[in-house]
Structure formats: C-alpha cells, structure tokens
C-alpha cells in the first residue's frame, strides 16, 4: 500500500525537531498541497451570519480551532442576508502514522457491475436467479425492500429488478411467514429477502427468527444456503446488535445498504467461484 515518498524517514525528516527514531517503523504522512509535508488542506462551509470582516474573522477562528494554522479565507460570499459561504485554505499540524492504520477488512466479496452479475448467473445457473422479498409481520414500511428490489433503486443504483438475470418477486408489506414460505417454494426461490424497518419491542428480531425457523423446518434436508433451501437475508436499520447466527439467517444488511451490495452477495453466496 505504501507509495514512494511516504517512507518514515522522508516524512519525519521534514518535521523540525522530531526526535530521532531508531529502527523507525512509523510512516508519518500529512496532507500534500504542492510540497511534501506542507500539510495544506482546503475546505468550505457556511456560517449563519451576514457577510463582512467580522464573519471572515469568525471563519478564521473556526479554522484555527479545527487545527489550521495558518489559515486564510480565500473566498467569502453572502448567501442572502443571513448566511455567508467561505472557502478556506490552511496548514494542519496533525500527523498520521500510516503504518499504524490497519487495512480495513472490507467486504468478503467484490462488488460487481450489473453486467458481471448477469453474466455470472447465466454461466452458473443457465436460468434466472429467483429472489423473493417481503416485509413480514405488521411492518408496513416497504421503503427498505423497495429500495433493494424496485428498478428505481437507491443511492443512484438500480434495484435487483434491473438485473436481467434476476427474477424478483416483491410481495410487499405485512406478509405472513406462511405466505412467504409458500411463495418461496412455489417460485423455487434461490434467495429470500425480508425487511424490517419500523418495529416495536424487538418485534423485528422475533419476526426474523420466526421466519428463519419456518424455512429451516420447511427444508429439513437442506445442506446449506442455496443447497436444498433458499439463502435467507434480513435487512433493516435495527439489526446492529445481533449476528446472523442469532437469528438463523445467512446474512444481515444494515442501514445504507445498496442494491449492488446485495447483488454481489447473492453471487458470492449462491454461485461459488463466480465472484472472483
């Protein structure tokens, strides 16, 4: 990961008075404007005050408190009578030891383009991959399941319906577990997605466990997800305290999940070897 010009010796060498570090394993970096180690950053923000010298002084003080020293307001512009927009440049004194930053674990599977997903499904299955989705229990909020399934999608990404090789059955809201199991069997689903957005008293956990138990009971001879039973996926903003094992599902997706992440996971989990 380390590139040229970021070695510990070179970086620390630019910091006056830095103590000599025998066998230094650190890799100290600072922002780069046009000279190694100059620490220059740019930022822009709005303050809720009328434009003028006093507003500029306030912007400089904020920059100082943020660690920019020296800082300069290169642009300030009134936005209506009550607000001022600033662009500020300044030097930060903060040092980052890059060596101490672990590489984030990342997704265990790669994000694929829609074409790659379609190609993987065609190659591995020679038929469309079937996804059945629903909001179970009393939850009437289809915003989550629709964001993942509807063509309209979420965060600029199209939903799973957009993928030619994925057949989506979106059962909507307030679906019972029995209806969901029955439909998944009838459609020969490869994956089942349930969404739980607004719930009370941990109903989302209860509902999801009940759903998982029903699927496990319905497919007693299943070997694993995708082998004898559908892959079970739960999604929603309130699952961050539990693991998939707690609920009996294969995967939990939290707030902000995009359709491509789900599509990539489907390929990874159901079509081994196709996500490379």
């Amino acid at each position: 990961m380390s590139g040229p010009g970021t070695s510990g010796a070179a970086a620390t060498g630019t910091v006056p008075g830095a103590p000599a570090q025998p066998a230094d394993t650190r890799q100290v970096i600072r922002p780069y404007g046009d000279t190694t180690g100059d620490g220059m950053v740019q930022m822009s923000f709005t303050l809720p005050v009328p434009a003028g010298p006093r507003a500029d002084a306030a912007a400089l003080q904020l920059a100082g408190k943020m660690g920019l020293d020296p800082a300069s307001v290169v642009h300030s512009k009134p936005m209506g009578p009550d607000f001022t927009f600033f662009i500020v440049y300044g030097k930060v004194g903060h040092l980052i030891d890059y060596a101490s930053i672990p590489a984030p674990e990342g997704r265990a599977y790669p994000l694929l383009s829609a074409q790659e997903v379609n190609r993987a499904i065609r190659r591995a299955l020679n038929r469309r991959l079937v996804v059945v989705g629903a909001c179970i229990g009393t939850d009437a909020h289809t915003v989550g399941i629709d964001a993942i399934l509807n063509v309209k999608g979420f965060a600029g990404e199209k939903g799973l319906e957009y993928y030619r090789e994925i057949h989506v059955v979106n059962m909507g809201a307030q679906v019972t577990v029995e209806e969901l199991v029955e439909r998944a069997k009838a459609e020969d689903a490869d994956a089942v997605l349930v969404s739980q957005v607004v719930t009370q008293r941990n109903a989302h956990l209860h509902n999801t466990k009940q759903m998982a138990a029903a699927f496990h009971a319905e497919y007693p001879t299943a070997v694993a997800a995708g082998i004898g039973r559908p892959l079970l996926i739960a999604g929603g903003p309130r699952f961050d305290t539990v693991t998939p094992e707690d609920l009996g599902v294969d995967r939990i997706f939290g707030k902000g999940t995009t359709p491509a992440e789900v599509a990539g996971y489907l390929v990874h989990a159901l079509l081994p070897g196709e996500d490379a």
Binding site: K77, M79, F83, A155
Partner: peptide, 12 residues
C-alpha cells in the same frame, strides 16, 4: 447523490 442539497449547494 451525496446528500439533499445544502444551502451552499443551491447557491453555487
């Protein structure tokens, strides 16, 4: 695609 527009986004 990042956030709903800020005051400054609209102004710019």
């Amino acid at each position: 695609g990042i956030h709903t527009p800020w005051l400054s986004d609209r102004d710019l």
